[in-house]
Design a protein around this nucleic acid. Structure first.
Lengths: 114, 114
DNA sequence: CCAGGTTATCGTAATAGGGCGATTATGGCA
DNA sequence: TGCCATAATCGCCCTATTACGATAACCTGG
């Protein structure tokens, strides 16, 4: 599942200047609130765990794992994607999702900074 | 859950059997979702930071620190209290709030387990 | 190009969340 | 006791979220 790719392989790295930002202050508060709000749903926690476990990417297998309709799962994926916690790469007819390790680290840093 | 506490000082300890629970599984997913949902608002992040900084307790000083009405702050405090992240002890005419260190540690453990 | 499966989006309905003012307890103090 | 300050609750409005089915968009293989 790696032949023709558009931008990058399924889980490509991106810009790095992301981890060394303050974990306090007004901006950090907003960021922490956005990230935790995105995580704040059981289905999204499950999705995150799925993507972390299979560190590689999956697609609509997520739908099979969750007791939710496909459209609902798609909505949750959108929330996680907009928060920057996951990323979706077009891989042929399907879409491979993967966690965004930097944002996850950032979340851990922000929570750890509490 | 907690019986009526009267004479306890502003930040009393409580039961300990709280930290060594699994950080994965269905129950952990629900717990993580509940906690992050409670944190998932800028005002509540600010409240948490206030209570962590002044490790001791404050009361309606929180209202002065936030650009929100007293009733709104009270609602946020209720959310945090119901999530177990803070605790409120009656201290004379006012109410002293303080963070619940165990729940905060639990949150960090759950996020760290992602 | 068309048929296949795969995912996103739309429309809708029910519920939850956020904010405020006003009101209601509650406890201390004169 | 009555009064004041503090905090919680209530009522209301508005927006956001969640969930689903249905539909549209998308790529690939034939």
């Amino acid at each position: 599942m790696a032949p023709s790719l558009k931008a990058a392989p399924t889980c490509a790295p991106a810009d790095e200047k992301h981890d060394l930002r303050p974990v306090e202050g007004r901006a950090a508060d907003e960021e922490l609130a956005l990230l935790t709000k995105a995580v704040g749903h059981p289905a999204r926690v499950q999705i995150l765990r799925l993507l972390v476990r299979r560190d590689s990417c999956i697609c609509g297998d997520i739908v099979d794992e969750l007791p939710l309709a496909q459209s609902t799962v798609s909505q949750h994926l959108k929330v996680l994607k907009e928060a920057g916690l996951i990323r979706g790469e077009i891989d042929g007819p399907r879409i491979g999702y993967c966690i965004e390790p930097r944002t996850l680290r950032r979340l851990k840093a922000l929570v750890g900074g509490l």
